[in-house]
Simulated scan of single mutants.
Amino acid sequence: MVLASTVKLNSGNSIPVLGLGVYQTPTDVADSVVQKALDIGYRHFDSAAAYKNEQEVADAIGAWLKKNPNVKRKDIFYTTKVFDTEHGYEATKKLIATSLEKAKAIDYIDLFLVHSPQSNYEKRHGTWLALQEAVESGKVKNIGVSNYGIKHIKELLAYPDLNIKPAVNQIELHPWLGRADLVKYLKDEGIAVEAYSPLARGPRSKRVDDPALGEFAKKYGKTNGQILIAWSLAKGFIPLPKTVTESRLISNFESLNFKLSDEDIKKLDAFDVYGVTGWDPTVYPLDNEKEENK
């Protein structure tokens, strides 16, 4: 099985085009799931402070690297995130220190994201300043955001002390939630687009089982999930499917081995109904909007 290729971020660093999301991956299986994924060829892992499994994921990567000295630390990409409750300069500095301690088996963090914009201007601003300092320290290589809408990105880009532009915005994306305007804005700004819930599974929906999607799976001789991941890759996104099942780890990774036709990509694009399957902080109001709504 071939390794996932990489793309360049606006920081100049590279990121693998396919990752493994570890949201809801239990701590007692994280080690085996991550090491099996590495055996398969995954080189990109997406965690968060809120997932409560940073330590286990980082330890698993560190243990696997020791057993596989031919693979270097620089070949693995590890992400974590600052949750909303830790926004603000001082709170984020403490959170970064804690996350780095949990990641000591792998020495540094490749990408630190603001998990969502759900706080206020002062706290979001303070969090970004703390993240910029973390990059300057050398222990965090890239910083970015998650669940940010256009207005949140514009606010960030207007910070008077902005030194580092977000490398990434991680958002829910799949054919039923294409977010064309937001995606275009991000690409115009040179911000990479990561797709979480690329299989359209969530509390509100199980669209992965849609019979219309199954027609594409039959045509290509692939699974519904593979069609969705291939669509995400074709759109230039970095999909982060999550699973703890070995067969699905393999199946998802094999999505790298085929491409959809341009015609079928357009047909899948037409599924779009703004079908959010989980939460949607991209619409979270800015401070002035809250005042207007009082």
Rank of each mutant, 00 (worst) to 15 (best):
L3K: 15
S5D: 15
V7G: 06
V7M: 11
L9G: 09
N10A: 11
S14M: 09
P16K: 09
L20A: 09
Y23H: 08
Q24K: 14
Q24M: 05
D31I: 08
S32E: 15
V34Q: 02
Q35C: 13
L38E: 08
D39H: 04
H44W: 05
F45T: 05
S47Y: 02
A48G: 02
E54V: 14
D59P: 10
G62Y: 08
W64T: 11
K67G: 09
N68E: 13
P69K: 06
P69E: 02
P69L: 00
T79V: 15
T79M: 10
T85S: 15
E86V: 10
E86K: 13
E86F: 13
Y89P: 02
A91I: 09
L95H: 11
L95W: 10
I96C: 01
T98V: 09
T98K: 14
L100W: 12
E101N: 13
E101W: 08
A103Y: 10
K104S: 12
K104E: 11
Y108Q: 04
L111D: 09
F112A: 01
L113E: 08
P117S: 03
P117C: 02
E122C: 04
E122P: 05
E122W: 04
G126W: 02
T127F: 05
W128I: 03
W128R: 02
L131E: 11
V135Y: 03
G138F: 00
N142R: 08
G144T: 11
V145A: 07
Y148H: 05
I150T: 10
I153G: 10
E155W: 07
L157Q: 12
Y159L: 15
Y159A: 03
Y159R: 08
I171K: 15
E172Y: 03
E172H: 05
H174M: 01
H174Y: 03
W176N: 03
L182E: 12
K184L: 07
E189I: 09
V193C: 07
Y196F: 10
Y196M: 01
S197A: 07
L199C: 03
G202P: 14
R204N: 14
R204V: 02
V208Q: 13
G214A: 06
K219V: 10
K222F: 00
N224H: 10
N224W: 06
Q226F: 00
Q226R: 01
L228C: 01
L233C: 09
K235G: 04
G236C: 06
K242H: 05
N252S: 03
S255H: 06
K266F: 02
L268Y: 07
D269G: 08
D269C: 12
V276F: 04
D280N: 15
P281C: 03
T282E: 11
P285F: 05
D287V: 12
N288F: 13
E291F: 06
